[in-house]
């Protein structure tokens, strides 16, 4: 089996960076060691395969798509830049409210799952509830945020109003879950 130094030299020779003297030493070594010669031959074959690999051309439409995406992105940034100060403030406030509301929800859900882990009977029920809550929250956020994005370029003030609905919707989901829980307990 070839030693590490010779393996290194094989690779350097393939890359054309091995000094002439060391290359001669390598060839002498390969002549004397059949296993090393086989390994070098495989590396050479791989090197040939990769060296002749063709370049793949980009689809013709790609430049147009890139420039269209760029224009769209710059337009959106410009829209945000031109947003009135009070709308911007409303946005920031609604983002903070969304974060304030979702963070404790996520922490509470994780806490419930971790604690329920001790009781095999409880874990299934808690997981079911937690997942249902997460799915509802994520669906509501995706829907509302898409709506915000759509409105942003057309009517930024409406977008801010939609954004401010997010905390209300989240609270509604929590109330719904709470009522359901109480209903189940009564039953």
């Amino acid at each position: 089996m070839p030693n590490m130094m010779m393996r290194q030299r094989m690779q350097e020779n393939l890359d054309g960076v091995l000094e002439e003297e060391l290359a001669e030493e390598l060839y002498a070594y390969l002549n004397a060691d059949e296993e090393a010669a086989e390994e070098y031959s495989r590396l050479e074959q791989l090197d040939n395969l990769l060296s002749r690999a063709p370049h793949v051309r980009a689809p013709q439409r790609i430049a147009v798509t890139i420039m269209a995406r760029l224009s769209h992105q710059l337009q959106r940034e410009a829209d945000v830049d031109h947003m009135p100060e009070e709308v911007r403030q409303a946005f920031l406030m609604s983002i903070s409210l969304v974060m304030l509301e979702t963070m404790p929800m996520m922490i509470a859900a994780s806490y419930l799952v971790l604690n329920a882990g001790r009781d095999p009977k409880l874990i299934g029920r808690v997981l079911e509830r937690t997942i249902a809550l997460q799915v509802m929250v994520i669906d509501a956020l995706v829907f509302l945020l898409k709506e915000v994005e759509y409105q942003l370029s057309r009517d930024p003030e409406k977008a801010a109003v939609t954004m401010s609905l997010i905390p209300i919707v989240l609270e509604g989901i929590l109330d719904y879950m709470h009522d359901q829980n109480n209903g189940n307990r009564l039953q």
């Binding site: 793949v56 051309r57 980009a58 790609i62 798509t65 760029l70």
Partner: peptide, 26 residues
């Protein structure tokens, strides 16, 4: 575009994803 696309295609092995990655890189 060709140089970037070829790199993305060789890295990702899939044309649609390579196209998207090329756009993103630019």
């Amino acid at each position: 575009q060709d140089a970037v696309y070829n790199l993305c295609y060789r890295m990702l092995g899939e044309r649609t994803e390579a196209e998207d990655a090329t756009q993103e890189a630019f």
